[in-house]
Amino acid sequence: MRPHVVAQLAVSLDGVTSGFDVDLARFYALASLWQEDVTLIDAGTILAQENAVLAAPRRGPRAEGPLLAVVDERARVRSWDSLRELGYWSGVLALYADQTPERPPDATTRELITGYDQIDLVEVLDVLGDRGVQTVRVDTSGVLLRSCLALGLIDELALLVHPLLIGGDRWYDTGHLDLRHAGTEVFKDGVIWMRYCVTSAR
């Protein structure tokens, strides 16, 4: 059975995901309420933080933490050991396609290979479900999340809406989604946490 897939992102009032400060402690405290079994993220997000990951203390895998699964079609991520040891996740899983470049011969990171030249996200979720995964949280506001939405793979969406107008491209046209309101919380600084069930794509 395919797992329940959730996504949370911070946006401005006009639907932009960058150009403003986000309270990361609050963001991840709210995200932790889903208690995901797997955190799904793309290689670009990892690479953007790679220097910080490599410099961070290595606290060791967190046995009760989720598995970190990284969509890495071009095998660009090299910091697997550091990611595994950060203390957030129980382990790491590299998601590759058949045509992903060969990895170093001494690579020890677990792999899941789906699709030919692109990773098959539907199959990824099916395999994870077969392995007992119940909840997956998509931890990005970029291409990976938009791909999951376009494929109808997101079951629950949470927006941490900040009281700012930034200008620029909106993260996604939610008019293409069939959303059912599931809850709203307003914080003292004017940030609103809005949760929706995604029932289907229109």
Rank of each mutant, 00 (worst) to 15 (best):
A48I: 10
L30E: 02
L30V: 07
V127Y: 06
A69N: 08
T45D: 06
L47V: 12
L24N: 08
E73S: 10
R2F: 15
H4A: 13
V161E: 01
M194D: 12
R131Y: 09
L24V: 10
V122T: 15
D178W: 05
D139T: 12
D173Q: 09
A97Q: 00
R76L: 14
G167Y: 09
A94E: 01
V186T: 14
A43G: 11
Y96H: 02
A97D: 03
L165T: 15
G60F: 11
S32L: 14
V53S: 04
I154F: 05
L30M: 03
L67E: 09
S200W: 09
G129W: 12
D178M: 07
A29E: 13
P105M: 10
H4N: 15
E102D: 04
A97L: 00
L128K: 02
D37S: 15
L165D: 10
D139G: 08
A25T: 13
L144Y: 02
A43F: 08
D139P: 02
P105N: 07
L179A: 08
E156R: 04
A97R: 01
L68S: 11
R78T: 09
G19I: 04
R137D: 13
A150D: 15
V198N: 01
G183M: 02
L149I: 02
W34T: 15
T108G: 06
V77M: 02
P66Q: 14
T100H: 04
R195T: 12
D14C: 08
R131D: 13
A69V: 13
A31D: 07
T174Q: 01
M194S: 08
L83C: 08
I154R: 07
R170L: 07
L68H: 12
A158Q: 03
P105C: 10
L93R: 07
L151I: 04
Q35F: 13
D173L: 10
R2C: 14
V138H: 04
G190S: 06
E36Y: 11
D189R: 07
E36P: 15
D126W: 03
V198E: 01
R62I: 03
G65D: 01
G91H: 11
D126K: 05
D21T: 03
S79W: 06
R103Y: 07
T39S: 15
P66T: 11
C148Y: 10
L47P: 01
G91K: 07
G65F: 03
A31R: 13
S82G: 06
L145F: 05
G65T: 00
D189N: 14
G129E: 15
L128V: 10
P57M: 05
P3A: 09
A94Y: 01
A29Q: 14
A56I: 05
A10M: 00
V22G: 05
F187P: 03
L54I: 09
T140R: 09
V136M: 11
G132Y: 13
W80K: 03
L68N: 08
G175L: 04
T174L: 00
F27T: 04
G175K: 01
D42F: 00
L164H: 06
V16W: 02
L157V: 02
Q49N: 10
C148V: 09
E102K: 08
R103N: 03
E123H: 08
A48Y: 06
F20S: 05
D178C: 11
V122N: 15
